[in-house]
Nucleic acid binder design. Sequence first.
DNA 1: AAGTGGACCTGCTAGC
DNA 2: TGCTAGCAGGTCCACT
Length: 271
Amino acid sequence: MPELPEVEVTRLSFGERIRGARVLAVRLGKPLRWPLGAEPSALVGTTVGETRRRGKYLWLALDRGGLLLHLGMSGSLRFAPEAPPPGAHDHFDLVTDRGTLRLTDPRRFGAVVWSEGVDAAPAARLLAGLGIEPFDEAFTGAHLHAALKRRRVAVKTALLAGDIVVGAGNIYACEALFAAGIDPRARSDTLSRPRCERLAAAVRATLAQALALGGSTLRDFRDAHGTAGAFQQQTAVYGREGLPCRVCGRAIRRIVQAQRSTFFCPRCQKR
DNA sequence: AAGTGGACCTGCTAGC
DNA sequence: TGCTAGCAGGTCCACT
């Protein structure tokens, strides 16, 4: 699910509300991708600080250390004053005096990991190697061009890898490539500087638009209030195999790259 | 060293 | 109606 817009929408929907809350209890469900790495009881009595995002990770600061959260493929967070009894897919509850922050994640690719700090293990190790933030001013066409030059993979694969720029997952990588008029199969080191300028701008614009629409809800994404996103209703290519391109009318194609579906318009997007 | 494929886990849908 | 194959928003790790 959750690419940068969904993670950021989630953060915005509970970060301020939970700030300053006192932790009353921690409840764990089935195992997630990694163990919590702390005794749940050790978190009780601490106070929640700032909620930050890095790539698709969230960092929830506590008095001492904090929690690094990832939503995986199917995770979502809710924060509400009253939480119903945990269901089969509710695998983490942070019960506070202002409400319960609950991770629901059917596939359990998500994670909640306690760490002494963002810059300490294990958080630091998970965040190491992440690419630049797309809304950072250092993410320029020049930066992208230089990074893509060092690879010899399909440009879509390079975007998805997340070590050049973070945040664009399968939906938004497809959408950004369409917006930039670039064939997802084009080899990363063949893209001209001007095309990289267009691609960098398209990545930012696509993510910004998705953010403004509350993200994409394909099946189960919700923000911390329980609200669904709306971006999925206006994708240009993602999930539109066989349907006419909104620009030229040609049928959108689906191919597989790096074991993921890629959608593109064979006329509007060029190598 | 970069590139590729498998692994993790569950649920839903299309097709027979 | 019921079963099965295929697919799903991510990313770490082992291997070539």
